[in-house]
């Protein structure tokens, strides 16, 4: 009898493997938590998209809960994301953009065409700040709390279905 039960062992192994592989099918391998969660927003000093003489640094993000959105003119999904960002801004979320590996002219053109939900845009033409943030595919969105600590990251574009969740995350840290 005991030996008979032992014959079920391969089936159990199969079922176990099947369970994990099946779960893996529904997972998105590109959605990973940021390595910077619960850490300070990296230090930087850069100009803004609108003004090459202006200088902004990480203190820009202190005092208010802020959504930092990394975008670029050359990024097609950023265009699809803009309506959701405009909705978020209308709902009272403070948005700061990082214009990533772009030119000033192209970036400003983009805002003219698709709207400007951002309080200010940090101009990062070499992608240095993006690198510090571990950006590997625009758009990416970081939630920074009042103390300037990164609390949440959304990789990929924010779909209309995601808006509610993002608002909840923002409210959590207010």
């Amino acid at each position: 009898m005991k030996r008979r039960l032992l014959l079920l062992f391969p089936l159990l192994v199969f079922l176990g493997l099947g369970f994990f592989l099946y779960r893996g099918l529904a997972m998105d391998p590109s959605a990973r938590d940021s390595a910077l969660l619960a850490q300070k927003f990296p230090a930087f000093t850069l100009s803004t998209l609108k003004d090459s003489d202006a200088r902004v640094d990480e203190s820009l993000l202190l005092g208010q809960v802020t959504l930092v959105n990394v975008w670029a003119e050359w990024c097609p999904t950023c265009k699809e994301e803009m309506p959701q960002l405009l909705t978020l801004a209308e709902r009272g979320v403070r948005l700061v953009g990082i214009n990533y590996k772009d030119t000033r002219a192209k970036g400003l053109e983009f805002l003219d065409e698709f709207g400007d939900p951002f309080e200010v845009n940090i101009f990062d033409p070499d992608g240095d700040l993006g690198f510090e943030l571990g950006v590997y595919g625009v758009p990416e969105t970081f939630l920074v709390d009042k103390e300037g600590i990164i609390r949440y990251k959304h990789t990929g574009y924010i779909t209309p279905e995601d808006v509610e969740r993002v608002v909840q995350e923002v409210d959590k840290w207010r």
Binding site: D33, A35, L36
Partner: peptide, 8 residues
């Protein structure tokens, strides 16, 4: 690299 992009 891990500090920026994670253990991945």
């Amino acid at each position: 690299m891990v500090a920026r992009f994670g253990e991945f």
